[in-house]
């Protein structure tokens, strides 16, 4: 009967739409990351920057540093200076200190964020402890460097920006997720 065939064909097509939209929901995850990177929105910074820029001596930008512990994170964590003044194009290093006060080895992951978010695309990290996870033995203290260049094309109205790190305890999820995190954080 042709009506049966029509219905069957329609149902198959509609089911394909359903499956495709289920997939689209998951596709939104990489699309979101790509959009944030492409437009430099959401304060997300990119991976390792390998370019070099001429230093713009005429201009100064204040860079503030913030360090926050995520819930349940017990490490002592902070920058060595609250802020620095840099010239766009110049490469600057800042050290962050982390100390594990517990009696267990722990693994941590730092997630960076830049405010104002429109400046994120102009904040280049050439080296960062956030690219890898940090393992600290009981009572161990380390200095972790971040080396960055402020892009010369930073919009003129941005005179001051903030680099914030949130430190997460990832000890529990270390083995399986470690690889995935690494590849996602530093593409």
């Amino acid at each position: 009967m042709t009506e049966e065939r029509l219905t069957r064909r329609l149902v198959v097509r509609l089911c394909l739409v359903v499956v495709a939209m289920f997939g689209f929901g998951f596709a939104l995850v990489p699309i979101y990351d790509v959009m944030c990177q492409a437009f430099g929105i959401n304060g997300k910074t990119a991976g390792v920057y390998e370019g070099q820029q001429a230093v713009d001596e005429q201009r100064q930008v204040r860079v503030q540093f913030l360090a926050t512990n995520a819930a349940d994170m017990v490490w002592e964590f902070g920058p060595q200076a609250d802020e620095v003044v840099v010239h766009p194009g110049d490469s600057t290093q800042m050290l962050f200190v982390a100390y594990n006060p517990t009696d267990k080895p722990m693994t941590a992951q730092a997630i960076p964020s830049v405010a104002p978010s429109k400046a994120a695309a102009y904040f280049h990290k050439t080296e960062c402890f956030c690219f890898t996870q940090q393992v600290l033995q009981p009572g161990e203290r380390i200095e972790m460097p971040v080396r960055f260049i402020i892009d010369r094309d930073l919009p003129a109205d941005v005179r001051h920006l903030t680099l914030a790190y949130t430190l997460f305890d990832v000890t529990a999820r270390k083995p399986p997720v470690a690889q995935a995190t690494l590849t996602r954080a530093a593409p």
């Binding site: 929901g25 939104l28 995850v29 979101y32 959401n42 995520a70 992951q109 997630i111 949130t166 997460f168 305890d169 990832v170 999820r173 399986p176 997720v177 995935a180 995190t181 996602r184 954080a185």
Partner: peptide, 20 residues
């Protein structure tokens, strides 16, 4: 299952949840 779609610790983002 230990993924991190919405957990910043594993490279995800809680704001992504709101978009989806």
């Amino acid at each position: 299952f230990g993924t991190s779609f919405f957990s910043a610790a594993g490279g995800g983002d809680p704001v992504l949840f709101q978009h989806v």
